[in-house]
Design a protein around this nucleic acid. Structure first.
Length: 359
DNA sequence: TCTGGGGTCCTAGGACCC
DNA sequence: TCTGGGGTCCTAGGACCC
């Protein structure tokens, strides 16, 4: 590898990560339909976190209500979410990535990371990364290779499972052009429908769409951003600056809707208490609060409030009462969430590529 | 079928100031 | 009496991702 070698973006993604961790410690589950979600009780309000490939064959996938998943696969193995185990496994994987020669690693979540490298042979490098992770952790992964973050991320889908796929400006439209816009990373059901309303159904159509109608529909920033997404363009630099959280939140869906005013208020205070516990050691003052309430069956309201920066727990809780008072006393509550926003260090305010807006 | 929990960023509109 | 233009801050809501 020389300094003259071209630079590449690799997108690393573990295969069926959560299910894979469970199967690693219970090898007898290999080959069975395994579903991980909630507390592992399909009679509760919860959703599927990850399904094994065997379970996916029955049409079960992430985000599906656990109740429905259990109905689709009566003899599935349903396990509770064990966040600590996944965090530990994830850290070992990310350490392995950082140990690769010349790698700049940007972690995206438990099971994903971008890797920036310079090499003349990204395929061979990617296979070495896969082998290193498998060797050290027993976990299989797929890798997308790209000349931008967007292309690398999208490429991974074509490599799964246990594979490698390259997507660059040279083959982007050949591979993606005829696909619907919802296949793009950052385009969901709402935006793909609004694009369709503009006569844009495919990636190729989005790639050549003029800015003006996109700006009119989505605003000055998001409009042009969707256009560049259609072309696969965007940032190509992997940024390993440590992430600094903007805030912490805690939310709960109650198994039975809450109707008692005192119970609702106590529940909200408890959630904020947990969020404050989470940030207690950070030494960053709280500068804002948020409250989310879902009234049964499915209407969500949010309230936010800026407060004078303070690290005093009692003061924060007192400020939260103004938000809690906004909860409608006449409607049953299905979900409550409380969020505490923290002051950002001055040197972190600018410059770091945000998770969503930056590519 | 009936929808978790934890995040981030963008937009619109109102309040307020000069 | 009827009313500018620009700017910033705050709140609520929307959308997406893992």
């Amino acid at each position: 590898m020389t300094s003259a070698a071209p630079s590449w973006v690799l997108h690393f993604d573990l295969d069926q990560f959560i299910a894979a961790v469970e199967i690693l410690r219970r090898p007898e589950l290999a080959g069975k339909p395994v579903i991980v979600g909630g507390r592992g009780d399909p009679t509760e309000r919860a959703v599927v976190s990850t399904a094994s490939y065997e379970a996916r064959a029955f049409g079960v996938g992430s985000g599906m209500p656990l109740r429905i998943a259990a109905r689709k696969i009566p003899d599935a193995v349903i396990l509770p979410v064990d966040a600590e185990a996944y965090t530990a496994a994830s850290e070992e994987v990310m350490e392995t990535l950082r140990a690769q020669p010349g790698a700049t690693v940007q972690v995206l979540g438990w099971d994903e990371a971008f890797i920036g490298i310079r090499t003349d042979d990204p395929e061979t490098y990617a296979q070495q990364v896969r082998a290193a992770v498998l060797d050290r952790t027993g976990l299989h992964a797929s890798i997308g290779i790209g000349d931008t973050l967007v292309r690398a991320k999208v490429a991974t889908g074509f490599g799964k499972p246990r594979g490698v796929f390259r997507l660059t400006a040279a083959n982007w439209l050949d591979v993606m052009g005829d696909r619907p816009t919802i296949d793009l990373w950052g385009v969901g059901t709402k935006v793909s429908k609004r694009l369709a309303g503009l006569g844009i159904g495919t990636v190729a159509e989005l790639a050549v769409a003029p800015d003006a109608p996109l700006v009119a529909e989505f605003g000055p920033k998001m409009g042009p951003w969707y256009g560049s997404l259609g072309r696969g363009d965007g940032a190509s630099v992997v940024d390993d600056t440590p992430w600094i959280a903007r805030g912490r939140s805690r939310e709960t869906t109650y198994q039975h809707d809450l109707t008692d005013r005192g119970e609702i208020e106590a529940a909200a205070r408890e959630l904020l208490g947990h969020a404050l516990d989470d940030i207690a050691g950070e030494g960053r003052p709280v500068v804002g609060l948020g409250l989310k309430v879902r009234y049964a069956p499915f209407t969500t309201k949010t309230f936010t409030r800026k407060i004078a920066p303070t690290s005093d727990r009692g003061a924060v809780l007192a400020e939260a009462e103004a938000l809690i008072a906004k909860i409608d006393p006449d409607r049953p509550v299905r979900l409550l969430g409380m969020r505490a926003e923290m002051a950002m260090p001055d040197d972190a305010r600018e410059g770091h590529t945000p998770t969503r807006g930056g590519w």
